[in-house]
Amino acid sequence: MKANKRLSGPGNTNLNVVGKFKCMLETKDKFSVQDIYVVKGLSKPLLGRPAIQALGKTKWTYTIALGLDAKPFSLSTPRRVPLPLMDKVKAELTRMEKLGVISKVDEPTEWCAGMVVVPKSNGDVRICIDFTKLNESVKRENYPLPAVEESLVRCKFFVLAN
């Protein structure tokens, strides 16, 4: 199909979009119909934000395995949130909790990482967490993701009626 959408790559360079097609993408417990854009001269396929968001949240829980030598880390003093940003930080944390990205912890915990608030150019705030100490203790797993080309080959094509 003809594509009227402008796509850009690194450095905001325009990508040469040749066309698009509809494709059903699926994971173990979700599926989503997405527009797949065909780009001339693209060396590696890209999965866009809409597809990632549609397929990203699953119903299963995931446990991060820690090494046997892991020692809990906790900040003795939390980083301060600037007072002018406090309301925006509370609003962003509430939004993230409603989305299921984070959850409240109402009991003592051995692990505690520092939160850093970064103001965005549009006036919103970005919540960042320093997981450096935790990451030192995480066991690395080997789950190579299939190439996008491989996933597209398995893609189920269909035509939507206009």
Rank of each mutant, 00 (worst) to 15 (best):
M1E: 13
G9H: 13
G9T: 11
G11K: 01
N12D: 10
N12K: 13
T13Q: 09
T13V: 06
G19F: 05
K20W: 07
K20D: 05
F21K: 03
M24G: 11
M24S: 12
L25M: 15
L25H: 02
D29G: 15
S32K: 08
Q34G: 10
Y37K: 09
Y37D: 06
V39M: 05
V39F: 14
V39G: 03
K40R: 15
L42V: 09
L47Q: 11
G48K: 15
G48A: 07
P50G: 03
P50L: 06
A51F: 14
L55E: 01
L55K: 11
Y62V: 12
Y62K: 13
T63Y: 03
I64H: 08
A65L: 13
A65N: 14
A65M: 12
G67K: 14
L68P: 09
D69T: 09
D69R: 11
D69C: 05
S76V: 02
R79K: 14
P82M: 05
L83G: 08
L83W: 11
P84D: 08
M86Q: 15
M86I: 12
M86R: 07
D87H: 09
D87I: 05
K88H: 11
V89H: 13
V89Q: 06
K90R: 12
E92Y: 02
T94M: 13
M96I: 01
E97K: 11
E97L: 10
L99V: 05
G100R: 09
V101L: 09
I102K: 08
I102S: 13
K104V: 03
K104F: 15
V105E: 06
D106A: 01
P108T: 03
P108H: 13
W111M: 08
W111T: 01
W111N: 07
C112V: 12
C112E: 01
G114D: 02
M115E: 00
V117L: 04
P119E: 15
K120G: 12
N122A: 12
N122W: 10
G123W: 12
D124M: 09
D124I: 03
V125I: 00
R126G: 07
C128E: 04
C128W: 10
I129G: 03
F131Y: 02
T132P: 07
K133P: 01
L134H: 01
N135W: 02
S137I: 02
V138E: 00
V138D: 09
V138C: 11
K139Y: 00
E141N: 13
N142M: 10
N142F: 13
N142I: 01
Y143P: 03
P144V: 11
L145H: 02
P146D: 07
A147G: 05
E149N: 09
E150N: 02
L152F: 04
L152T: 02
L152S: 00
L152H: 00
V153E: 11
V153I: 02
R154V: 05
R154Q: 09
K156I: 11
F157I: 12
F158L: 15
L160D: 10
L160N: 11
N162C: 05
N162A: 15
